[in-house]
Amino acid sequence: MLSIKDLHATVDGKEILKGINLEVNPGEIHAIMGPNGSGKSTLASVLAGRDNYEVTSGSVTYRDQDLLDMEPEIRAREGVFLAFQYPVEIPGVTNVYLLKAAINAVLKHRGEEELDAMSFLKLIKQKAALVEMKQEFLYRSVNGGFSGGEKKRNEILQMALLEPHLSILDETDSGLDIDALKIVAHGVNALRNDQRSMILVTHYQRLLDYIVPDYVHVLAGGVIIRSGDKSLALELEEKGYGWIESQADAA
C-alpha cells in the first residue's frame, strides 16, 4: 500500500523530517505517536501533497506509484485521504457542495458515472447517519461555526463518503468528548477491511482502545525512534516519551 523510504523534508529551509521509514500493507492500521513538534503533521501533509514542504530526499511509493510525483487532488482521487488536525473553515461553500464535488471527482477519475442529485443525497444521508451528524450540518458552510468536535466528525464524514484506500487521521481524536470519540471510532471501524489501510496520529492511547492498531510507532525529532505493537502505546501512556528518547539518543 504505502512504502516510505528515508524521507527527508524541510519547511522554510528547516529540516523537519529526517529520514522516515515506514511500510504499510493493505488492511493494516498504524498508529503514530510522539511529542509535540516532532513532525507528525508534517509527515501527514507531505503524504497529502502540501506544497510548502520540500522533500529533499527519499521516496514514497503508494500502490506502485510514485506518490510524491502526484498533485494533491490526484492523490485524493487515487484514494489517499487526510483528516486534518485543524479542519479548515470555508465560508460560502456549503458542506454538501464540497461533499458532492469530492465524490464526483473521485468517481470521474475512476471512470465511473458521477452521482446525480438524488443518489448523492441518499448516500450522504446514510453516511451522515453513520457519524450521527445532523442534516442541518450538511447545509452549513464547510466547518463554518462548527465546534472542534463537529469539525472532526465532519472529516470522518468525508472519509466515509470517499472510502479511501489509505486514510491518514491527524489527531482526529483530539478535542472529542467520550461519546464523539466512540462515534468517530465507529465510523473508522465501519470502513475497515483487509484492503484499506490507516495511519492514526494520536497522543492518546484511549483512541487505540476503540480502533486497535496493528503497529505503533514513535516519531521524535523527525525520525521513527521505535516501533512495536499496541502494547507500546500502553507503555508510553505510563512512562511518557522520555525513556525512549534517551535510549534513542544513547544509540
Binding site: 494533491p72 487532488e73 485521504f81 479548515v88 464540497l98 469530492a102 471527482a105 470517499l162
Partner: peptide, 13 residues
Amino acid sequence: VSLFYLRTRGISE
C-alpha cells in the same frame, strides 16, 4: 490552506 484542503478532497486546483 483552504486551497490545499479542497485539493485533498479531489478538487482540481
